[in-house]
Simulated scan of single mutants.
Amino acid sequence: MVSPGAGLSAVAIVGPTAVGKSDVADRLAARLSSEVLSCDAMQIYRGMDIGTAKMAPDECTAPLRLVDIVEPGVAYSAALYQADARAHVERLLGSGCLPVFCGGTGLYLKAALDEMDFPSGELEDDRRAGYQELAERIGEEELHALLAERDPESAAVIHPHNVRRVIRALEMHDDGISYAQQKSQFSVPREHYHALWFGLTRNREVLYERINLRVDLMFEQGLVDEVRGLMDQGLGDALTSMQAIGYKEIIDAFNGVMSMDEARELIKMRSRRYAKRQLSWFKRDDRIVWFDMDEFTIDKVVEDILHRIEAA
């Protein structure tokens, strides 16, 4: 049993899709006699298994949490993830275990581990509907002017045409939170939990080939049938969950927008682009210690992390 240093509250395994995060996190959590807390904005949905590359229970050595927690038609957010994730962190720390986060949704991870406030209107409510109605009535420019009057600092960093973000800033101002100040925290994070962050990467071409092979495997495993089943439940493409890569494209194919072969290639392309965006997001965080998985085995990465945990 590895004993973490005083004050260490979590470990995070991050990186782009298909790089190998799940295997490292699962093995690490098992060595720590702990649990993996998934940090994936789409793995939270029940029934979305193949297209999100969710680890099956019989593939896991350590318990996997924060997957299958809501139905695909239910609204979810970083604010809700923050509450759910922190409840698990407190439970694990209370039992003497070190939580192991794993995932590629950077915003969710920061919400859980760093100081980040959310407006009470994070989900659809009467207040948000009111601001949306106001925007339609007075127009984008006037809505932005209203924000400038109430919170000039936040208005200065939001484009007037970005109505969704203007509304969010207004909601945050109503709750006594500054959008601009929170935005600045992304570059200078303030820890809520002291965590060690580890990133996995690979040669770009190797990573892209892994992504392509993963998509082909998803089709072999029955991704098309999985999407058809969700659609049969009345889960249409307007839902956030159905906008996930691998689902939206197949829905479009069902609707005649493209062929299924074209959908497969589009999923590969969008997955590669998503991986590039994930790398860009995480590379901005200087706390992350990176491992090149073309040079390290899973066991070597886990041993290195365990030594760093002991030394923390």
Results as ranks from 00 to 15, higher is better:
Lys183Tyr: 01
Phe101Asn: 09
Met258Cys: 14
Asp84Ala: 13
Lys183Val: 00
Val289Asn: 01
Leu109Tyr: 08
Ile309Ser: 08
Thr105Cys: 06
Glu226Ile: 13
Thr201Pro: 05
Gly229Thr: 13
Pro57Asp: 14
Gly15Ile: 08
Leu66Gln: 14
Gly256Leu: 07
Asp117Met: 03
Leu306Gly: 03
Arg273Met: 12
Gln185Cys: 04
Arg86Asn: 10
Leu28Lys: 00
Arg214Glu: 14
Gly222Thr: 10
Leu200Trp: 00
Val188Met: 01
Arg277Ser: 14
Leu213Ala: 09
Ala29Gly: 07
His307Val: 12
Gly234His: 07
Ser3Lys: 15
Ser154Asp: 07
Ala75Val: 14
Gly104Trp: 01
Pro160Arg: 02
Val70Gln: 06
Gln181Tyr: 04
Gln221Val: 05
Leu98Lys: 02
Phe219Pro: 07
Ala75His: 11
Leu28Gln: 04
Ala244Asp: 09
Glu59Phe: 00
His307Glu: 13
Val224Ile: 15
Val257Phe: 10
Ala12Gln: 05
Ala238Ser: 12
Arg273Glu: 15
Ile298Met: 04
Glu90Trp: 02
Pro189Glu: 10
Pro63Lys: 07
Gln132Lys: 11
Gly51Trp: 00
Trp290Cys: 10
Val2Phe: 09
Ser184Trp: 05
Lys276Thr: 15
Leu107Arg: 14
Asp26Phe: 01
Ala112Glu: 14
Val188Arg: 03
Ser33Asp: 14
Gly176Arg: 05
Phe219Ser: 01
Arg165Leu: 10
Arg272Pro: 02
Gln233Pro: 03
Leu93Asp: 08
Arg150Gln: 05
Asp294Gly: 11
His161Asp: 15
Thr52His: 04
Leu213Cys: 00
Ala78Arg: 00
Trp290Ala: 06
Ser187Asp: 12
Arg31Tyr: 10
Thr297Lys: 07
Asp286His: 02
Gly256Tyr: 06
Leu143Tyr: 09
Thr52Leu: 07
Gly94Ala: 11
Cys39Val: 15
Asp294Ala: 01
Glu124Cys: 00
Val2Pro: 09
Tyr208Pro: 07
Glu153Val: 10
Ala312Lys: 03
Ala311Gln: 11
His307Arg: 11
Leu306Ser: 01
Leu170Arg: 04
Asn255Phe: 05
Arg204Trp: 08
Leu147Ala: 04
Asp23Val: 13
Val11Arg: 02
Glu142Leu: 09
Leu200Asp: 05
Leu80Ser: 06
Val14Asp: 04
Glu59Val: 09
Glu115Cys: 12
Ser241Lys: 10
Arg86Gln: 15
Ile13Arg: 06
Arg65Cys: 14
Tyr274Glu: 10
Met242Gln: 12
Ser178Cys: 07
Leu235His: 11
Val19Met: 06
Lys248Glu: 13
Trp197Ile: 13
Ser34Phe: 02
Glu133Ile: 09
Thr201Asp: 14
Gln43Ile: 12
Arg190Pro: 06
Arg27Asn: 01
Asn162Tyr: 05
Gln43Glu: 15
Met293Val: 11
Glu295Asn: 06
Val100Asp: 12
Ala6Asn: 09
Ala111Gln: 13
Arg277Thr: 15
Ile309Asn: 03
Gln132His: 09
Leu239Tyr: 15
Leu32Phe: 04
Gly176Thr: 13
Glu209Leu: 06
Ser9Glu: 15
Ile138Pro: 07
Ala18Met: 08
Ile305Ser: 00
Ile245Asn: 04
Val215Tyr: 08
Asn162Met: 06
Asp84Glu: 11
Leu66Asn: 14
Ala83Tyr: 05
Arg277Gln: 14
Arg86Lys: 04
Val100Met: 09
Pro63Glu: 11
Arg168Pro: 01
Asp216Trp: 03
Arg164Glu: 13
